[in-house]
């Protein structure tokens, strides 16, 4: 199967790989997917005062498209407010990476991951 150049670039040079301590109060963690399905994404955001995402990291078990989707997402959410981050749609990711139809679920997973991370952060705050 042929991958788009953007997928290859993110796969070869993934951005923002890493972890934050998930117990920190300003960190939100979203882990989605399941090993049985062949992909698990862990996306973490660090939120500054004023509700702006200062930093984001990821680790992903999955195919190249899943890795690229999460890598791209960490770039996109940095500097965005929580609401802006939650407004990112999977279709935008799929379009940016030129994902073929069988790989659309990877972008869906990325959207789920950012929503879960924001959710986690909000819960810690409340």
């Amino acid at each position: 199967m042929a991958y788009s150049e953007k997928v290859l670039d993110h796969y070869e040079n993934p951005r923002n790989v890493g972890s934050f301590s998930k117990d920190e109060i300003n960190v939100g963690t979203g882990m989605v997917g399941a090993p049985a399905c062949g992909d698990v994404m862990r996306l973490q955001i660090k939120v500054g005062d004023g509700g702006v995402i200062e930093d984001a990291v990821f680790k992903t078990y999955g195919c190249g498209s899943a890795i690229a989707s999460s890598s791209l997402l960490t770039e996109w959410v940095k500097g965005k407010t929580l609401d802006e981050a939650r407004a990112i749609k999977n279709t935008e990711i799929a379009e940016e990476l030129a994902l073929p139809p069988v790989k659309i679920h990877c972008s869906v997973l990325a959207e789920d991951a950012i929503n879960a991370a924001v959710e986690d952060y909000m819960q810690k705050r409340s």
Partner: peptide, 24 residues
């Protein structure tokens, strides 16, 4: 493996079967 959250968990001694994964 450096990229894999599952590898992290394995290294932290977490049993993957103990986690309730949201199947999709």
């Amino acid at each position: 493996r450096e990229l894999s959250p599952l590898w992290d968990m394995y290294k932290d001694g977490i049993d993957l079967d103990s986690i309730e994964w949201a199947a999709h």
